[in-house]
Nucleic acid binder design. Sequence first.
DNA 1: TTGTACGCGTTATCAG
DNA 2: CTGATAACGCGTACAA
Lengths: 333, 333
Amino acid sequence: MRVTLKDVAEEVGLSVSSVSRVINNTGRISDEKRKAVFEAAKRLNYTPNANARELKKQTSSTIGVIIPDITNSFFVRMLKSIDLRLWEQGYNIIFCDTDESVERELEYYQLLKEKNVAGIIVSPASRSMIYENETQNINCVFVDNEPYMTEKPYSFVSINNCEASMELTQRVIDQGYRDIIMIIGSLDETSSNQRLIGFQNCLRANNIEWTHDRVYFGDCHYKSGFEIVEDLIARNRLPECIYAHNNMEAYGAYAALRKHKIRIPEDIALVCFDGKDPTFMQDTNITGIIQPVEEIAEAAVEMVLNNMKTPGKHNRRLLPYGFYEGHTLKSRT
Amino acid sequence: MRVTLKDVAEEVGLSVSSVSRVINNTGRISDEKRKAVFEAAKRLNYTPNANARELKKQTSSTIGVIIPDITNSFFVRMLKSIDLRLWEQGYNIIFCDTDESVERELEYYQLLKEKNVAGIIVSPASRSMIYENETQNINCVFVDNEPYMTEKPYSFVSINNCEASMELTQRVIDQGYRDIIMIIGSLDETSSNQRLIGFQNCLRANNIEWTHDRVYFGDCHYKSGFEIVEDLIARNRLPECIYAHNNMEAYGAYAALRKHKIRIPEDIALVCFDGKDPTFMQDTNITGIIQPVEEIAEAAVEMVLNNMKTPGKHNRRLLPYGFYEGHTLKSRT
DNA sequence: TTGTACGCGTTATCAG
DNA sequence: CTGATAACGCGTACAA
């Protein structure tokens, strides 16, 4: 069995509460006994029991982080930033990769509640059911995507996806492109949804006809981007420019194009969101909108910590985004 | 306050222990009351308290995973695989990114002990102090790197790095290269160490003179690979082939070469370990040894779960590795 | 300054 | 089949 407060109390001939006091540095204790306690604790290799402590104090130092897929470098950088901030504040992370599954997301959510986590940061999957039957007041901050239909107020941090998408589309058009298609994820993801709306708005504003074969539905993964483009190639339907709504689909699209020796951007242009990964080779990063991952993570952490102090208070922050000039879009003349 | 067993017990007019029995499906209970309990639990939105439960049962369903840097895609894939396996077995993960810091690694280790985790899977940083003063019998499986000097037996899963490094070097030599340099990490990392030894052995076996300027010390990160190569270029000391001991340093090296318009593999060859990332564009993956990440993760999970049942039993597994034929090494003739 | 006693929410043992 | 009761390890109000 493990060494407990009781053990070190017996070792030094004190009461459990006294030992507890010196360990937690609470209340007055004679220096002499304090020293004795520390020595005994060290000697016996005493390790506090976090379960007992948290049960007693009704608090926790862990935050649940729910993301759809750690394989996506966007979420990697997000997790890294969140982790860094939380660590600085003395919190640790229960890692929840839902693999884009709403069921798994819900199970993780349940688990986190059982674990009494101090808060949750979640980038919800499409049609997330997390909040559907939620009646309690959970400290939950949404990132990147908003929950799918809910009456409950919630905290949220992201960018203005519609506006960013319009800007991106306009930049493409400004380079002389008109035949543009978009690969998006599920419409139930608000980010995906907003990006599509921005795309449509911008086309309309530029008097470019909207047709339904301008949009292809992927599942946010590399493979779907790859397959969609392979199919386009097979049907000889490649447009002038492909706009993938996220990085993974863009990478897949890129790979499919390269496989068929189609040159980028000479033969076709490619843009997307979050297509610049600092660990990638520079010349393969993709032109497009850049979300401020670090700032988003920072804001999310700030919110989740604040919401601990003042529960029930929710806010919404949309951060400024950037544009990355890569090598996959050139002037078309 | 949260809803407890007591609350639902009062709601249905039963004792706490009876309610506990139906929740855990242990012991006999009349179907009628069982149903009542479930209904009440649902109505009140009862959520079990994992802290209390674990405190009582002296068990835990969480595993700590300690890695040096989640920004490295190798560890991403590792984490993803570990997560998948553990999830299937009903375990969840406390995520510990040490940022290559031994101090932080140690603090995380301490934290995990306090949390009473069921086990730990750790890819230790160089000069890891985790095991230095460990006297208890912790269920800890080492991955990729071995602990830095310890008398204690431990579980370990990896590949034979020395052998793999020899094979890689031989392949380079077989393509007609003799002027090869190596970028490695700290010698205190056993993996790095072994790879250097393999490199040296192979050079010797091929009667290629060993000189100290054949080895450059990086820190496992992109930046160090980049800077080392920039420096080589500045000093006009580029070899025929660069062998980076890990993927990140190779990416950095690649970027530096490209920045100076040096062609790969026409002007210089580049090889490394784990240079193939499924989410990368295919034509930028780097030739070299491939560790079986999924299998390593699987084995680690298997070990950590087994060690729970039979504590004190340790074993060591070296898995077969592969070779990836990329586009960064061509025959030199 | 120190010790006693209680309770956090559960589960397990032992009666009934 | 069901209900007290103790105990997991800890922190704290209260008493001394």
